[in-house]
Simulated scan of single mutants.
Amino acid sequence: MFDIAVNLTSSQFDKDRQQVVEDAQAAGLSGMLLLGSDIDESQQVAELATQWPGFCFATAGVHPHDAKSCTPNDLLALKALWQQPQVVAVGECGLDFNRNFSPPEQQELIFDAQLALAAELQLPVLLHERDAHQRFIEIYRQWQDKLVGGVLHCFTSDRVALDTCLDAGLHIGITGWVCDERRGQELQQLVKHIPADRLMLETDAPYLLPRDLKPKPKSRRNQPAYIAHIYQRVAELRGEPLAQMSQQIQTNISQLFGI
């Protein structure tokens, strides 16, 4: 089992970061990907990943929320990070028109710039999209043929968006949202339609604690060790043996991220 999205720099992990990683290892994880969402965090996760070589890997990128403060020098700093062997993807990058913490035009500019750098360096992309599907796909398609691939992290949209993303060659990242009997019903149906060679799973820890996890932690904090619960639930929804699905996901991750 591999977790493709862990926010290990979150302040929720400040008191026990090492223990969280050790718990993940004890739970049987083969590895996890630490997310960078701005320059400072990207530098932090690149350094953190070196503490657990072969188990922790990192992304480096600028989240759409932070696009407004991204400068050309920041992109140069990112380019240096992408040269480090433990940094295996560009991202988290994309568009978020739900809250517009950065102006949409600036989001689009920085998203396009990161796709250009990913194409130049031949690195996969870890993508974010919320309430911006049409522009997201339009921009991504301009680079699709030049990129080695990507994964849309934390997919919670509808069948039309799923089919469009699959048609664009993207992998699909599914979180514990699929374990929510209230908000996750549509996603529970959609996971059956993701081809086995495009599926990836994630916790997005410390966020999105699976609603049906028992017993629930008193802190209500999600952590990578709980990815096993998500794997089990998705295997049930897809009607696949857990071991078979897990092996295929590991293959998908190895092929996309080179790990």
Score class of each variant (00 low, 15 high):
residue 99 R to Q: 06
residue 105 E to C: 01
residue 239 G to T: 12
residue 165 C to I: 04
residue 207 Y to E: 03
residue 9 T to A: 07
residue 82 W to N: 04
residue 160 V to P: 02
residue 112 D to V: 07
residue 141 R to I: 15
residue 208 L to I: 14
residue 90 V to E: 15
residue 79 K to R: 13
residue 48 L to S: 03
residue 161 A to N: 06
residue 93 C to W: 02
residue 74 D to K: 00
residue 244 Q to S: 10
residue 170 L to P: 05
residue 173 G to T: 13
residue 85 P to H: 07
residue 220 R to P: 06
residue 174 I to T: 03
residue 190 L to H: 05
residue 174 I to V: 15
residue 231 Y to A: 06
residue 242 L to A: 10
residue 120 E to V: 05
residue 155 F to L: 01
residue 70 C to V: 00
residue 37 S to R: 02
residue 210 P to L: 04
residue 248 Q to P: 07
residue 215 P to I: 11
residue 187 L to Q: 05
residue 205 A to W: 13
residue 103 P to I: 04
residue 182 R to D: 14
residue 224 P to A: 13
residue 129 E to R: 08
residue 85 P to M: 01
residue 178 V to L: 07
residue 32 M to D: 04
residue 215 P to A: 09
residue 77 A to Q: 10
residue 88 V to L: 13
residue 123 L to Q: 13
residue 186 E to W: 07
residue 212 D to N: 13
residue 23 D to E: 14
residue 10 S to V: 10
residue 115 L to G: 10
residue 28 G to M: 03
residue 50 T to Q: 09
residue 107 Q to I: 01
residue 72 P to L: 05
residue 200 M to N: 09
residue 108 E to L: 04
residue 157 S to A: 10
residue 44 Q to E: 05
residue 219 S to E: 15
residue 105 E to G: 03
residue 213 L to E: 06
residue 153 H to V: 07
residue 101 F to I: 01
residue 161 A to C: 12
residue 213 L to F: 11
residue 72 P to H: 07
residue 32 M to P: 06
residue 200 M to T: 12
residue 236 E to T: 09
residue 74 D to T: 05
residue 24 A to Q: 02
residue 224 P to N: 07
residue 19 Q to A: 12
residue 221 R to V: 15
residue 156 T to S: 12
residue 103 P to D: 05
residue 206 P to V: 14
residue 93 C to Y: 02
residue 58 A to T: 04
residue 171 H to V: 13
residue 38 D to Y: 01
residue 183 R to A: 12
residue 225 A to I: 08
residue 70 C to S: 08
residue 84 Q to M: 02
residue 54 G to V: 04
residue 259 I to F: 15
residue 200 M to V: 13
residue 181 E to K: 06
residue 237 L to T: 03
residue 32 M to F: 15
residue 146 K to Y: 12
residue 111 F to N: 09
residue 33 L to C: 10
residue 129 E to T: 14
residue 236 E to A: 14
residue 44 Q to F: 04
residue 209 L to K: 07
residue 31 G to L: 03
residue 238 R to N: 10
residue 130 R to C: 00
residue 174 I to L: 00
residue 129 E to F: 02
residue 140 Y to G: 09
residue 136 F to L: 02
residue 28 G to A: 05
residue 27 A to C: 07
residue 74 D to Y: 00
residue 96 D to Y: 01
residue 218 K to G: 15
residue 254 S to N: 10
residue 68 K to M: 04
residue 217 P to G: 11
residue 130 R to Y: 00
residue 25 Q to G: 00
residue 115 L to M: 14
residue 19 Q to N: 08
residue 230 I to A: 01
residue 178 V to C: 02
residue 108 E to N: 03
residue 142 Q to N: 14
residue 199 L to M: 11
residue 41 E to I: 11
residue 12 Q to Y: 07
residue 69 S to F: 04
residue 243 A to Q: 14
residue 111 F to M: 08
residue 185 Q to N: 14
residue 196 A to R: 14
residue 214 K to L: 08
residue 225 A to R: 11
residue 6 V to W: 09
residue 249 I to Q: 10
residue 222 N to R: 08
residue 223 Q to W: 08
residue 126 L to D: 12
residue 216 K to A: 11
residue 256 L to H: 13
residue 211 R to K: 14
